[in-house]
Simulated scan of single mutants.
Amino acid sequence: MADTVLIDKAKKIFENFLIKQGNRKTPERFSVIDELYILPEDEHIDVEGLFLKMRNKGYTISRATIYNTLDLLVESGLAVKHQFKDKVALYEQALTYKHHDHHVCNQCQKIREFSDPKINEIKDSTGRDFKSQITSHSLVLYGDCKIENCENLSALQAF
Protein backbone atom coordinates (compact mmCIF):
# COMPACT_ATOMS: atom_id res chain seq x y z
CA MET A 1 0.00 0.00 0.00
CA ALA A 2 1.35 3.39 -0.95
CA ASP A 3 2.21 5.91 1.70
CA THR A 4 -0.35 8.65 1.05
CA VAL A 5 1.49 11.09 3.32
CA LEU A 6 4.61 10.64 1.19
CA ILE A 7 2.65 11.07 -2.05
CA ASP A 8 0.91 14.19 -0.70
CA LYS A 9 4.27 15.64 0.36
CA ALA A 10 5.74 14.92 -3.10
CA LYS A 11 2.73 16.57 -4.76
CA LYS A 12 3.07 19.70 -2.58
CA ILE A 13 6.79 19.99 -3.38
CA PHE A 14 6.03 19.48 -7.08
CA GLU A 15 3.21 22.04 -7.03
CA ASN A 16 5.52 24.64 -5.46
CA PHE A 17 8.22 23.78 -8.01
CA LEU A 18 5.81 24.16 -10.95
CA ILE A 19 4.54 27.52 -9.66
CA LYS A 20 8.08 28.79 -9.14
CA GLN A 21 9.08 27.66 -12.66
CA GLY A 22 5.93 29.06 -14.25
CA ASN A 23 4.76 25.63 -15.45
CA ARG A 24 1.18 24.41 -15.60
CA LYS A 25 -0.22 22.20 -12.85
CA THR A 26 -2.04 19.48 -14.79
CA PRO A 27 -3.75 16.37 -13.42
CA GLU A 28 -1.62 14.23 -15.76
CA ARG A 29 1.60 15.49 -14.19
CA PHE A 30 0.34 14.69 -10.71
CA SER A 31 -0.83 11.23 -11.83
CA VAL A 32 2.80 10.44 -12.77
CA ILE A 33 3.75 11.16 -9.14
CA ASP A 34 0.97 8.83 -7.96
CA GLU A 35 2.27 5.99 -10.10
CA LEU A 36 5.98 6.57 -9.45
CA TYR A 37 5.50 6.81 -5.71
CA ILE A 38 3.39 3.66 -5.35
CA LEU A 39 6.30 1.60 -6.68
CA PRO A 40 8.52 -0.09 -4.10
CA GLU A 41 11.37 2.24 -3.09
CA ASP A 42 13.99 0.07 -4.77
CA GLU A 43 12.12 -0.31 -8.07
CA HIS A 44 13.32 1.39 -11.25
CA ILE A 45 10.97 2.02 -14.16
CA ASP A 46 11.35 3.31 -17.70
CA VAL A 47 8.96 5.60 -19.55
CA GLU A 48 7.42 2.76 -21.55
CA GLY A 49 6.79 0.69 -18.41
CA LEU A 50 5.19 3.65 -16.68
CA PHE A 51 3.13 4.45 -19.79
CA LEU A 52 1.78 0.88 -20.01
CA LYS A 53 1.10 0.73 -16.28
CA MET A 54 -0.86 3.97 -16.45
CA ARG A 55 -2.74 3.03 -19.63
CA ASN A 56 -3.75 -0.30 -18.04
CA LYS A 57 -5.19 1.66 -15.13
CA GLY A 58 -7.27 3.80 -17.48
CA TYR A 59 -5.19 6.97 -17.54
CA THR A 60 -5.25 8.94 -20.78
CA ILE A 61 -1.71 10.21 -20.92
CA SER A 62 0.89 10.41 -23.66
CA ARG A 63 4.45 9.18 -23.56
CA ALA A 64 5.57 12.77 -24.17
CA THR A 65 3.76 13.94 -21.05
CA ILE A 66 5.41 11.17 -19.04
CA TYR A 67 8.86 12.06 -20.45
CA ASN A 68 8.37 15.74 -19.72
CA THR A 69 6.94 15.14 -16.26
CA LEU A 70 9.78 12.81 -15.30
CA ASP A 71 12.28 15.46 -16.43
CA LEU A 72 10.51 17.97 -14.18
CA LEU A 73 10.47 15.49 -11.30
CA VAL A 74 14.23 14.97 -11.69
CA GLU A 75 14.78 18.72 -11.82
CA SER A 76 12.67 19.23 -8.69
CA GLY A 77 14.52 16.48 -6.80
CA LEU A 78 11.54 14.13 -6.65
CA ALA A 79 12.97 11.50 -9.02
CA VAL A 80 16.39 10.14 -9.86
CA LYS A 81 17.31 9.18 -13.41
CA HIS A 82 19.73 6.33 -14.12
CA GLN A 83 21.32 5.28 -17.38
CA PHE A 84 22.64 1.72 -17.15
CA LYS A 85 24.93 0.67 -20.03
CA ASP A 86 23.10 1.07 -23.32
CA LYS A 87 19.66 0.65 -21.76
CA VAL A 88 16.87 3.21 -21.73
CA ALA A 89 16.75 5.66 -18.84
CA LEU A 90 15.25 4.31 -15.65
CA TYR A 91 13.69 6.37 -12.89
CA GLU A 92 13.11 5.92 -9.20
CA GLN A 93 11.44 8.02 -6.56
CA ALA A 94 13.74 10.36 -4.66
CA LEU A 95 11.83 11.94 -1.78
CA THR A 96 13.10 9.34 0.68
CA TYR A 97 16.18 8.61 -1.41
CA LYS A 98 19.25 7.39 0.42
CA HIS A 99 22.36 7.21 -1.73
CA HIS A 100 23.09 3.73 -2.99
CA ASP A 101 24.97 2.08 -5.80
CA HIS A 102 23.79 -0.55 -8.25
CA HIS A 103 24.62 -4.03 -9.48
CA VAL A 104 23.13 -4.89 -12.88
CA CYS A 105 23.08 -8.47 -14.12
CA ASN A 106 24.21 -8.82 -17.74
CA GLN A 107 22.09 -11.97 -18.10
CA CYS A 108 18.75 -11.25 -16.47
CA GLN A 109 18.92 -7.42 -16.30
CA LYS A 110 17.95 -7.43 -12.61
CA ILE A 111 19.07 -4.28 -10.80
CA ARG A 112 20.08 -4.64 -7.19
CA GLU A 113 20.83 -1.72 -4.89
CA PHE A 114 23.60 -1.79 -2.31
CA SER A 115 25.51 0.49 0.03
CA ASP A 116 29.02 -0.13 1.25
CA PRO A 117 30.85 2.19 3.66
CA LYS A 118 34.15 1.39 1.89
CA ILE A 119 32.88 3.31 -1.15
CA ASN A 120 32.42 6.42 0.99
CA GLU A 121 35.96 5.97 2.31
CA ILE A 122 37.24 5.90 -1.29
CA LYS A 123 35.14 8.96 -2.14
CA ASP A 124 36.56 10.86 0.87
CA SER A 125 40.12 9.76 0.13
CA THR A 126 39.82 10.77 -3.53
CA GLY A 127 38.41 14.13 -2.49
CA ARG A 128 41.40 14.73 -0.22
CA ASP A 129 43.85 13.60 -2.93
CA PHE A 130 42.34 15.95 -5.52
CA LYS A 131 41.60 18.73 -3.01
CA SER A 132 37.96 18.51 -4.02
CA GLN A 133 34.70 18.35 -2.15
CA ILE A 134 33.08 15.30 -3.77
CA THR A 135 29.35 16.06 -3.83
CA SER A 136 28.05 12.96 -5.57
CA HIS A 137 29.10 9.77 -7.26
CA SER A 138 27.66 6.96 -9.30
CA LEU A 139 28.83 3.37 -9.22
CA VAL A 140 27.31 0.61 -11.30
CA LEU A 141 28.75 -2.89 -11.22
CA TYR A 142 27.86 -5.29 -14.04
CA GLY A 143 28.03 -9.07 -13.67
CA ASP A 144 26.61 -12.33 -14.96
CA CYS A 145 23.72 -13.91 -13.11
CA LYS A 146 24.63 -17.03 -11.13
CA ILE A 147 21.28 -17.26 -9.35
CA GLU A 148 19.81 -20.72 -9.79
CA ASN A 149 16.31 -20.57 -11.29
CA CYS A 150 16.50 -16.79 -11.63
CA GLU A 151 12.97 -15.58 -12.39
CA ASN A 152 14.24 -12.66 -14.50
CA LEU A 153 16.47 -14.90 -16.63
CA SER A 154 13.61 -17.40 -17.12
CA ALA A 155 11.31 -14.57 -18.24
CA LEU A 156 13.89 -13.31 -20.75
CA GLN A 157 14.46 -16.79 -22.18
CA ALA A 158 10.72 -17.17 -22.81
CA PHE A 159 10.96 -14.55 -25.60
Rank of each mutant, 00 (worst) to 15 (best):
F17K: 03
F30Q: 04
T135I: 14
D144H: 10
N120F: 13
D34V: 00
I147N: 09
I147R: 09
Q21T: 04
Q109M: 15
I33G: 06
V88A: 12
C105I: 01
T69H: 00
A64C: 08
K20P: 02
F30P: 00
E41P: 04
I119Y: 07
A155P: 03
V47T: 13
A79Q: 01
D46H: 03
N68Q: 13
L72H: 05
A155D: 10
H137R: 14
L36P: 00
L36K: 00
Y91R: 01
G143N: 11
I66L: 08
H103A: 14
S132C: 15
S31Y: 06
F114L: 09
G58N: 03
S138H: 15
V32T: 03
I45F: 02
N68G: 05
N56E: 14
A64R: 11
E28H: 11
L73D: 01
L78N: 03
I19Q: 05
L50V: 02
P40I: 05
E75W: 00
Q83M: 10
L95H: 06
E28G: 07
N120Y: 10
K81V: 12
T69N: 01
L90M: 13
S115P: 07
Y91H: 01
D42S: 13
A64Q: 12
E148I: 11
E28I: 05
G77F: 01
T26S: 14
Q83K: 15
G127N: 06
D129H: 12
H44M: 10
I111Q: 06
N149K: 15
I119H: 07
L70T: 01
K110D: 11
D46I: 04
G22W: 04
L39Y: 08
T69G: 05
L95M: 11
L52M: 14
I45E: 03
N152R: 11
E151P: 15
I147Q: 12
K123F: 06
E151C: 07
D124E: 15
Q109V: 06
A89G: 07
L153E: 11
N23R: 14
A89I: 09
D124G: 07
V74E: 04
S125M: 13
L153R: 02
N149P: 06
I122Q: 04
H102S: 13
K53E: 04
A64P: 00
G22S: 09
L70F: 05
Q109E: 14
D46R: 06
K57L: 05
E92H: 07
T96H: 10
S132M: 15
